[in-house]
C-alpha cells in the first residue's frame, strides 16, 4: 500500500465521510482546533518568551513550565483530536499539499526541540531559574520554538487557500 492509497482509505472511512457530509461537524472541529491552539501555543509562547528574557521575567522558569504544563497538554490533545478528524476527512487533498507537509515537518521539529530541551539544559534549571539571561541553549530553544509555531500556524492557514 502506498501512502496515497492509505490516504484514500482514510478518506473513505465512514467517520471521514461523516465529517465531510455534516453541516456542523467541520465548523465545530475547526473551532475546537483554534481553541486548542490558544491553549497550546498561548502557553508555549509565554514560556518561550521567558526563555528569551521577555514577559514573565520575574517568575522562575521551572514554575512557569510546571504550572503551564496542564494547559499545554490539554491544548495538544484538543489539537490532535480535532486535527486528526479534519485530516482524515480530506486526506487525499492534504497528501498533495506542500503546506500540510511543511506543517507536519515543523510539528516533528517542534517536538524534537522540546524533547532535547527537556533532557539537557532544563535538567539544570535550578542553576538559572531566575537568571535574567537564560543559558544560550535555552534561549535558542525558545527562539526555535516560537519560529516553528509561527510556521505551523502560517502553513495551516495557507492549506485551504492552496488546495485544488
Amino acid at each position: 500500500m502506498t501512502l496515497l492509497e492509505i490516504c484514500q482509505w482514510l478518506q473513505d472511512l465512514p467517520l471521514s465521510q461523516q465529517v465531510r457530509e455534516s453541516d456542523v461537524l467541520f465548523p465545530y472541529l475547526s473551532i475546537a482546533h483554534v481553541m486548542g491552539l490558544t491553549l497550546a501555543a498561548g502557553s508555549i509562547a509565554y514560556l518561550d518568551l521567558r526563555l528569551l528574557g521577555f514577559g514573565l521575567r520575574r517568575s522562575p522558569v521551572s514554575k512557569i513550565a510546571a504550572s503551564l504544563l496542564p494547559c499545554m497538554w490539554t491544548g495538544y490533545v484538543v489539537l490532535a483530536i480535532s486535527g486528526s478528524l479534519i485530516m482524515i476527512s480530506e486526506a487525499v487533498m492534504l497528501y498533495e499539499s506542500w503546506f500540510f507537509r511543511a506543517k507536519l515537518f515543523m510539528m516533528m521539529l517542534a517536538g524534537l526541540n522540546a524533547l532535547v530541551f527537556h533532557y539537557t539544559v532544563f535538567r539544570r534549571v535550578g542553576e538559572w531559574d531566575l537568571a535574567p539571561t537564560a543559558p544560550l541553549q535555552a534561549r535558542l530553544t525558545g527562539a526555535i520554538s516560537l519560529m516553528l509555531w509561527m510556521g505551523m500556524i502560517a502553513a495551516g492557514r495557507a492549506i485551504p487557500y492552496y488546495s485544488s
Binding site: G42, L56, R157
Partner: peptide, 27 residues
C-alpha cells in the same frame, strides 16, 4: 490575526488562571 489571538489568549490564560490560583501561585 492568529498570532494576535495566540498572544492575547495566552496572556488571558496566565492572568486569569493566576486569579483562580491555578498557576504561578508563588508570584
Amino acid at each position: 490575526h492568529l498570532i494576535g489571538i495566540v498572544l492575547l489568549f495566552g496572556s488571558l490564560f496566565v492572568v486569569n488562571l493566576r486569579l483562580f490560583g491555578l498557576v504561578l501561585r508563588t508570584q
